[in-house]
Computed example of a mutant assay.
Amino acid sequence: MAYASALLRDPARTYREIDLAGRTAAADGPALVQLLYEELTQALRVAAWAADNRQFATRSERVTRATAILFALEANLDFDRGGDVSRTLARFYAGCRRQVVDASIGTDGEPFRAVASELEEIAAAWRMARAA
């Protein structure tokens, strides 16, 4: 009963979670990384909006999601095969996490948007590499 109540309270969120679960179940490794980048930049953009609009619960939720995705991206780097690229990405992800956590205590959305923009550049390069 509590589960049904939660579904009815926020049907849009429930739909997004079901949609994400479906997309991740069907995704292979490269497609999953692309999906993580999309979810990460979306979380950061919502955190920016929430910070600007003093919606602290939403900001906190999106910051938690963004940092979890950054940890997942870093944890799945293959340092044996990826060499310098993996090490560079690990440093980049750690730096992004630090920026997100630092921004989470303020009310300015710009730091979240800046990190999202940087990640979107990498996501675009990832898409081009997958398409080639």
Rank of each mutant, 00 (worst) to 15 (best):
G106H: 04
L20E: 08
A116T: 05
L73R: 12
R23E: 09
C96S: 14
Y37A: 01
W49I: 05
D102M: 11
G22N: 06
L20S: 10
A50M: 05
R23A: 05
Q34D: 15
S60Y: 03
G82H: 08
S86N: 08
G82R: 05
D108F: 00
T64D: 14
R9Y: 08
R113G: 06
Y15C: 02
Q34T: 11
A57F: 11
E121T: 08
L40N: 02
L77Q: 10
D78T: 05
V46A: 07
A21P: 00
I18R: 04
R16G: 05
R91K: 11
T107L: 14
D84R: 12
R65T: 15
R9T: 14
L32V: 01
A57N: 04
E118N: 13
L70Y: 04
R65A: 15
D10K: 08
I105M: 09
T24N: 13
L36H: 11
R113H: 06
Q42L: 15
E120S: 02
F92A: 07
I69M: 06
D19I: 01
S117V: 05
L44G: 00
T24M: 14
I105S: 11
V33N: 13
D52F: 00
N76T: 12
D108R: 01
V85E: 10
S104F: 07
S86G: 12
R62N: 09
R65E: 15
W49G: 11
T41F: 02
N76A: 07
T14P: 00
I69F: 09
A31T: 05
V101G: 04
V46L: 10
E61H: 12
D10N: 13
A124S: 10
F79D: 08
L89W: 07
W126I: 00
R97N: 03
A124C: 02
A48V: 01
A124N: 07
G95N: 07
R91M: 09
A68M: 09
W49M: 13
G95Q: 01
Q55E: 11
A51D: 03
L32S: 11
A31F: 09
F79S: 06
E38G: 10
D19R: 10
S104V: 03
Q42Y: 11
A75S: 12
Q42A: 12
A90S: 15
P11M: 05
T88R: 15
D52N: 13
R16N: 12
G83T: 08
I18G: 02
R62K: 04
Y15F: 14
V85L: 15
P111D: 09
D102H: 06
C96E: 11
W126D: 12
V115R: 01
A114D: 14
R62Q: 13
E61Y: 06
D78L: 00
P30F: 00
P11K: 02
